[in-house]
Amino acid sequence: MAITQLSVFLENSPGRLAEAVRIISDAEVNIRAMSLADTKDFGILRIIVSDADKAKSTLSANYIVMETRVIAVKMDDQAGALNNILQTLEKAQINVEYMYAFTGSESYSAYVVLRVDDLEHAEEVLAESGMPTLTDEKLKAIL
């Protein structure tokens, strides 16, 4: 379960992000979702891509890259959808480290990506509440 996210360590200086993105582009890998955490000195680029292995191997020549398992959950495009997910996690006392969202190819659908401190438990409680999490295979199908 869960899906693969690539996390890339970037120096916070002009051109570093552009260069990383260029490398992914040259490898003909599609970036489906991304988030960038930044500090004064460095940034961490987090991406969900069409071919994680290929992106990782090309990026690794120049960057520190790691695979992180994250949860992706489908949300209805309506008020309260994200709230449902977060309430479920809160009840189970699961801490969210960070999150971001992307849209799927079907209309009116959005997905939230969550990095949590207890991945298996989070998937369990979300499934119990009728919110199944994506797998790498399912992710491929909706992209």
Binding site: T39, I44, I64, Y98, R115
Partner: peptide
Amino acid sequence: ELNPDQFSDKVSDIQ
């Protein structure tokens, strides 16, 4: 320089 095995996807870990 950070070693690859010291990297984390969480900003707080690196800080």
